[in-house]
Design a protein around this nucleic acid. Structure first.
Length: 299
DNA sequence: CGCGCAACCTGTCTGC
DNA sequence: TGCAGACAGGTTGCGC
């Protein structure tokens, strides 16, 4: 679930909290999280490091450490990174994580905990265990992320760039938006919301967009991601921000998870289909399906 | 290279 | 109540 807005929210919340602090210990409880590096090896490598910052690239969280290294983490489907301290460690009523030395609720999904020099702890919890982390030298970062696409908030994400990426593509627009090697950070939720706002059908071939469609889609992608950040992310199920709180973007969905409900624009019924194996919600009357563009204009 | 799909995991919900 | 099956926000690898 965590897509760009969720990862950005966590990074922005936690960066000021973590910056300048030293890592006393990194305990990896699930070997899957650090593999292929053994848990103890990652812990040893990170012990004593000072945190210099926390950022994001695509859906990756980047914890900058001294010594020109970065601990890269990915939340995948159900991962959460939360800062906990003292008593706070558990109050289910307050919607927070709990941990009392015993495995209770969320705490049973604890995959790694990072103890800071002031006693606070950074927890990586993840029921489905798809999340992961690795330590990398900053010099190797460009190569490692070479295949990651353009950042949606960068000046390079123009309608023309979008058109260039889509040219000749026959894959459905929905699949196109989810391709991290083209645009980094858009996931299933925001792809649906962006296509709806751009009034584009999720099954339209990516290469079928005309200039006005590219402009609309670029703007819609940027807008929905910004809305997501402003709302502190979407909490459909597992997602919690860096403080363990829910985001509110799910309350602003216009189509996602709204099967059978009225379209906010035409009152027609929102439909759910499966595209590329992913649930896709849209309004059949507002989102027009484009035809595949002829390769050559007939004269 | 482009595209579609299975696989990776666990938890939750639905229907019989 | 029990149980099988479907489904869930992401990414990678494989086959065509």
């Amino acid at each position: 679930m965590p897509e760009l807005p969720e990862v950005e929210t966590v990074a922005r919340q936690l960066e000021p909290e973590l910056e300048g602090h030293r890592i006393e210990e990194l305990e990896v409880l699930d070997a899957r999280w650090s593999r292929p590096v053994p848990p103890a090896a990652l812990g040893d490598a990170v012990r004593g490091a000072t945190i210099e910052g926390l950022g994001r690239r695509g859906k990756y969280l980047m914890l900058a450490l001294d010594g020109d290294r970065t601990l890269v983490m990915h939340l995948r489907m159900t991962g959460n990174l939360v800062l906990v301290e003292g008593d706070d460690i558990l109050d289910p009523a307050a919607g927070r994580l709990l941990y009392q030395g015993e495995r209770t609720t969320e705490a049973r999904h604890l995959r790694a905990r990072c103890v800071l020099d002031d006693g606070r702890e950074l927890w990586f919890t993840d029921p489905r265990r798809f999340g992961e982390a690795f330590l990398i030298d900053n010099a190797d970062l460009p190569a490692r992320f070479a295949k990651l696409g353009v950042e949606p908030f960068s000046p390079e994400f123009t309608p023309e760039a979008l058109g260039g990426m889509a040219a000749g593509r026959t894959a459905p627009l929905k699949s196109f938006l989810l391709d991290q090697s083209r645009i980094a950070g858009v996931g299933n939720i925001y792809a649906d919301e962006a296509l709806y706002r751009a009034r584009l059908h999720p099954l339209s071939p990516a290469g079928s967009m005309k200039p006005e469609h590219r402009l609309a889609l670029r703007d819609a992608v940027v807008d929905v991601l910004q809305m997501g950040i402003d709302a502190g992310g979407s909490s459909i199920d597992d997602y919690r921000d860096g403080r363990g709180e829910k985001g509110t973007m799910q309350e602003k969905f216009l189509v996602h998870t709204r099967e059978g409900q009225p379209c906010p624009s035409c009152e027609g019924e929102i439909v759910r289909i499966v595209v590329g194996g992913r649930s896709t919600y849209f309004c059949p009357s507002c989102q027009v399906k484009l035809r595949r563009r002829p390769r050559r204009r007939a004269k």
